[in-house]
Simulated scan of single mutants.
Amino acid sequence: MSIETSSRQPGPADIRRWRRYLADERAEAAVYRDLAGRRSGEEREILLALAEAERRHEQHWLDLLGDQVGKPLRGDLRTRVLGFLARRFGSVFVLALAQRAEARSPYSADTDATPQMAADEQIHEEVVRALAARGRQRLSGTFRAAVFGANDGLVSNLALVLGISASGVPTHVVLLTGISGLLAGALSMGAGEYVSVRSQRELLEASTPNPATRSVLPHLDVDANELTLVYRARGMSADEAQSHADEVLHGLSTYTVEPDTASDVDAIDEHEAVGNGWSAAISSFCFFASGALIPIIPYLFGLGGTTAVIVAAVLVGIVLLGTGAVVGLLSGASPLKRALRQLGIGFGAAAATYLLGLVFGATLG
């Protein structure tokens, strides 16, 4: 489908805007090409197709500008940052940022962009969203453990340290309490994760059919066909189970299929991958400990009183904003909103314990 050009005489503002669009299209195409260079197979083909679509949009603005193209401009800061990340990392973070960039396309409200271009940009958002979803799924387990563990350590130990500090105890007591909270929380997280992973593995193992069952398949009564009960127990309808079991037994009787592969009687639907218990425990311990260390840093350097409280709160606030922004990026939501939400929740919990510490300190005093 051809792209129509504008028939009206462009003004200086139009020329500037078209040149900006041209620069952005070139930068976005470069981002997709850089990402494609780090992918293979279907994902590579999809990213190259997106780059080609951006090239078509680029040609539209070239046609409108004609001999007024001028010196090439640089893409906007957001797109340049995307390009930098794509060349060096090519990760799901870049795709998540690209998803948000596509969602902000101005073409739907610009009469100089064709309806096809506006539709392209909206479809591009969905394409990038789907590609980003693949990456999110690949790292969801590890990322969840990292964010949950670090945030738990940050908030719980900040609340503990501030609560104890507000009660008026000496600085060394606050430090000792913070270190104890770090160790206790990290060990608890590690032990809990180990038990969780081990229990999940044991449940899956209990659901795994006995491999010896395959050896009795050739001896089943074809007329009775007990194999249908296996498939019905797995959720198939009676007719589907009967048909599938007949196919399996027919393959065995005619030797057209090997017994080990003819039947999926030993198949199991694992809804989620399960990692190693010790690896999960050590990771959780480290994630929690890294977060819980932040609030006690000022006390480790000898600060005390209100100064230590303020420094601890500032340090934890910076980290909470960072983790919240990362969560926002990966979820395709606003990084700023997620960062502020994370900060509000963390500081809310810490403020509550600080006030309780003041109350108990005044009461005991």
Rank of each mutant, 00 (worst) to 15 (best):
L35D: 03
A13E: 15
D34R: 13
A262E: 11
T177L: 01
S243D: 14
V81N: 06
D223I: 00
L321E: 03
V81E: 05
V31I: 13
T142E: 03
T208W: 11
L22E: 14
Q68F: 11
G332Q: 06
L321S: 06
A281K: 01
E121W: 06
L330V: 01
A133V: 10
P10E: 01
M189H: 08
Y255R: 13
N157A: 02
T142K: 09
V94T: 11
G304Y: 00
A103K: 12
P209W: 10
I179F: 09
F89N: 08
G90M: 12
G185Y: 00
A325N: 07
A262L: 03
V197P: 00
D239A: 15
D112L: 13
A49D: 13
T353Q: 01
A133R: 13
R134V: 12
P106Q: 13
L203E: 06
L35C: 12
L182P: 06
E125N: 14
L77S: 08
A13R: 13
A159N: 02
H250W: 14
R44V: 01
R20E: 10
D246T: 12
S196Y: 10
P170C: 08
A29F: 11
A267D: 15
A113R: 08
L217C: 07
D120I: 08
G83Q: 12
N276K: 04
V174P: 14
P209I: 07
D24N: 15
F301P: 03
V327S: 02
T256R: 15
R88S: 10
S140F: 08
D260K: 11
S140N: 09
G41W: 14
A146F: 04
V174W: 13
Y255T: 05
G149S: 10
A49R: 08
R26S: 09
R33K: 15
L303W: 13
V81K: 04
A206R: 06
R138S: 12
V147Q: 04
S180Y: 07
V94K: 02
E226Y: 11
A118Q: 05
G291F: 02
G190T: 15
R87Q: 14
F93Q: 05
V216I: 12
I296S: 06
G90E: 12
L356E: 02
G235V: 13
P211R: 14
